[in-house]
Design a protein around this nucleic acid. Structure first.
Length: 642
RNA sequence: GCCUCGGUAACUCAGAGGUAGAGUGAUUGACUUGUAAUCAAUUAGCCGGGGGUUCAAAUCCCCCCCGAGGCUCCA
């Protein structure tokens, strides 16, 4: 007999070599039914794992955090089996589950998969799930495993994986009638039928080991769930994401676009998009002045000497746009930092004046590989809501806390509900010595800990000039976006010889942090468009109301109403086109204008307006609204960021 | 940059060797309407660019540009 400790602290005696499944049955039949895999002393194992010694046991059910991951990984195996059934020449390489949900499998194939191929794969996968066959595990010595992939199942990719492992024994999993078995650590779901909803989504290409010099593989994506309802919900989310695509909404709502042939990655912000940007900027300037920032402006282009001094020539050259002027080299700025260093250096700051906070909405240009571009999410012309804070070393924690508080304030104003913090450490290509990096990284972590913020560490993900805190924001449909970043820069201060005069009358080096909150204006604009699905809140709507006369005879009154609203500071328009009123209402609704005002004989008579609130659930029309009341309401909403 | 798929009217797309098409939009006219599309007419194009094959190319071949989904990268 062996003793099993359960998560609630209860002890259970079972006979030696009992499977997890039988233990689960012993605890309760419902648990056995819901069980997916288990953790023995913290290690993930299958349900048919046999317990040989006293252990701590946690049974993972389909409600557990790891369960969906295990399900999707198992789905990847099932798909690989299906692909090998249908295309015997295909060589499976790797097939993990992915965040936040889903899986892929990379195959080495002669011909890329077509849409029809994917449908075949889906059909075969559905059959295998119907068969509800068990997952089986087998152990092989490393030598036998390599031999298997060299002689029987000729797969050089698996051989390469095996040759890099340092264990003596590896495990294989198989399922169903076919001969397909796959090298895998496990664990897996007990049987294929546990998948109740699976969809093969799309195929694209990827390189073996992400290396462009190596073989090009076909990557097939899919997603799997424990019940069909979750799958439907997920597919709905994907549909929803497509509908929210800022590239489509941007042109439908006449906000922004690109002239790809004239300059890929160079966004054109149209008048209505610019209104939104202006509001974002006004909000930003107001909040920053309140928080003690001074706003500055620096040029877009500087001589090579600046970039030699800053280290960009050495570390960032491949991303910079060069300008050759009669043999003299200039570069368009890829970052705002040097200009801010120069502004700081215009005078000798005393320790009493620190911290000095310099902010700028600065447009920088960074050359990226063409394949990296994506709507407004990834552009070459980037307007950063940049600021540099120069401070005494012991002010660092306070300043970071202040930035974090501002980050929270901003994201709340834009209706986000959840965001996550990450600390990134030293990358391979970096300036500065290890001691400096350690010191700065430590300071970031301490600041976060001081304000009780939980964070994750991204090893080696820092900028070349310092460690950083990144903030990922979760949008309305659960996607994550990296927005704010707070970076310690302990290199530019040296390079630009940044000083302050201390109490001792001597020069000292201040700490400098570089930070953005929106991230960059282009991307932030795109994110809020997608987050709100184009239905901007009142305060951000480029057009807040359209006044529609019922017939031409009401045009004069409509004009008067619109003028009055504009005069009061509301973004109002009037629609005098030759269409019918119903058409104009539909048009304004599709343009996602929040308030649609109609005026006719009744309104003229009573000096009122009829207001349709497009944001309300039932799209209701309120008759007999007094114009001053409407003005007050909208101005109030502007003020409250509603 | 690499892989796969694309680029036809302002927009969305059909046409796959033989006269360049539809819907939406825009323009004009009629209608004067009480809450999500009134009717009619007009307008539409170096079929991404260059070269080649052919009696004939939007269509087949080659090169280039641009986009989408990935790889990589990142604010």
């Amino acid at each position: 007999m062996v003793k099993i400790e359960l998560p609630d602290g209860n002890m259970l005696e079972v006979s030696k070599n009992s499977t997890i499944l039988s233990i689960a049955q012993q605890i309760g039949p419902r648990l056995a039914e819901a069980a997916v895999a288990a953790k023995i002393d913290g290690n993930l194992v299958d349900l048919f794992y046999e317990v040989t010694k006293n252990s701590k046991l946690e049974i993972l059910t389909n409600k557990s955090e790891e369960a969906l991951d295990i399900l999707n990984h198992s789905a990847a195996h099932i798909m690989a089996g299906a692909v090998v059934d249908l295309f015997p020449d295909a060589r499976p390489t790797i097939g993990p589950s992915i965040e936040p949900v889903g899986f892929y499998y990379d195959f080495y194939v002669k011909k890329p998969f077509t849409q029809e191929d994917l449908e075949q794969i889906q059909k075969r996968v559905d059959e295998v799930i119907q068969e509800n066959s068990e997952f089986k595990r087998e152990e092989l010595s490393l030598k036998d495993a390599i031999n298997y992939y060299q002689t029987e199942d000729k797969n050089k990719f698996k051989v390469e994986i095996l040759e890099e492992t340092e264990v003596d024994e590896v495990s294989f999993y198989s399922h169903g009638k076919g001969a397909f078995k796959d090298l895998c650590r496990g664990p897996h779901i007990p049987s294929t039928g546990r998948i109740k909803g699976i969809k093969i989504l799309n195929a694209s290409s990827a390189f073996w080991r992400g290396d462009a010099q190596r073989e090009s593989l076909q990557r097939v994506y899919g997603v799997a769930f424990f019940n069909p309802k979750q799958l439907r919900k997920h597919l709905h989310m994907l549909e929803e994401a497509k509908k929210r695509d800022h590239r489509i909404l941007g042109s439908q709502l006449d906000l922004f676009g690109t002239a790809d042939e004239w300059g890929p990655g160079m966004p054109l912000i149209y008048p209505k998009g610019t209104i939104i940007l202006e509001i974002l900027k006004a909000f930003w300037i107001k909040e920053h002045r309140k928080a003690g920032y001074e706003i500055v402006q620096t040029p877009h282009i500087f001589k090579e000497l600046v970039w030699q001094t800053s280290g960009h020539i050495e570390y960032f050259l491949e991303n910079m746009f060069p300008v050759d002027l009669k043999g003299e080299k200039w570069f368009i700025k890829p970052m705002n930092c040097p200009g801010h260093m120069m502004i700081y250096n215009r005078k000798a700051y005393s320790y009493r004046e620190l911290p000095v906070r310099l902010g700028e909405m600065g447009t920088v240009y960074r050359y990226e590989l063409s394949g990296a571009l994506h709507g407004l999410f990834r552009v070459l012309s980037i307007t950063q809501d940049d600021a540099h804070i120069f401070m005494l070393p012991d002010q660092l924690e306070d300043e970071i806390v202040r930035v974090i508080e501002m980050v929270d304030h901003f994201y709340k104003a834009f209706g986000f509900e959840e965001w996550e913090y990450f600390v990134s450490t030293k990358p391979e290509k970096a300036i500065g010595d290890d001691a400096g990096w350690d010191h700065a990284t430590d300071a970031l972590m301490k600041a976060l800990e001081r304000v009780d913020i939980k964070y994750k560490v991204k090893e080696g993900d820092g900028a070349f000039y310092g460690p950083k805190i990144d903030v990922d924001v979760k949008d309305a449909i659960g996607r994550r976006w990296q927005l704010a970043t707070i970076q310690v820069d302990f290199n530019l201060p040296d390079r630009f010889d940044i000083n302050y005069l201390g109490e001792d009358g001597q020069k000292h080096r201040p700490f400098v942090i570089h930070r953005v909150i929106y991230g960059c204006m282009e991307r932030f604009l795109a994110i809020i468009v997608e987050n709100y699905a184009g239905k901007m809140p009142i305060w951000l709507s480029p057009v807040q109301t359209v006044v529609i006369p019922i017939t031409d005879s009401h045009a004069e009154y409509a004009k008067k109403v619109a003028d009055e609203l504009v005069e009061a500071g509301i973004r109002a328009e009037a629609d005098f086109s030759g269409e019918r009123m119903e058409y104009k209402i539909r048009h304004a609704t599709m343009q996602k204008v929040p308030y649609i005002i109609n005026v006719g004989d009744k309104e003229i008579e009573a000096e009122t307006i009829a207001v349709r609130n497009v944001r309300s659930k039932d799209n209701k029309v309120e008759f007999g609204v007094k114009i001053p009341d409407f003005i007050d309401k909208v101005l109030q909403q502007n003020k409250n960021y509603e």
